[in-house]
């Protein structure tokens, strides 16, 4: 039987999703998020944990999981970094890349990505 405490813990750590999409060429760029702005971060008013990045390049799903804590008011973004023949797409906190990232994302594609994180509700 599930413990009531587990219900409380899960409820206090709700999962949130943040979506990014855009057409990329070969240049390293931030992937635009809501409003179409490509910049280094959308602020999040609660602390939390980045747990998943999933990206679709038009033909392939790329995904990665991790547990990376961030603080209240930190800014989250996705950065497409040219690594020679393709992109590595990295989740960033305040413009600094984290280890939550997907590799081998093709140049000249249209990307749609979801960043999943839990916020510290309490």
């Amino acid at each position: 039987m599930p413990k009531p405490t587990l219900g409380y813990a899960l409820a206090s750590q709700p999962l949130m999703t943040m979506h990014f999409s855009g057409a990329v060429t070969t240049s390293s760029v931030h992937l635009p998020t809501a409003g179409g702005v490509a910049a280094d971060g959308m602020p999040i008013p609660y602390g939390g944990t980045l747990i998943k990045l999933i990206l679709f390049d038009g033909s392939t799903i790329h995904a990665d999981t991790d547990t990376i804590a961030f603080s209240a008011n930190d800014r989250l973004s996705l950065y497409c970094q040219n690594v020679g023949s393709n992109f590595t797409v990295k989740a960033r906190i305040n413009g600094v890349s984290t280890t939550l990232q997907v590799t081998s994302v093709p140049f000249n594609s249209t990307l749609q990505a979801t960043l999943v994180f839990a916020i510290n509700r309490v």
């Binding site: 413990k3 587990l6 944990t49 994180f117 839990a118």
Partner: peptide, 15 residues
């Protein structure tokens, strides 16, 4: 009694 929940991280990715 019986209330403890232990997880690998705060987001409860592993319980």
């Amino acid at each position: 009694q019986g209330s403890a929940v232990v997880a690998a991280d705060r987001a409860l990715t592993t319980i």
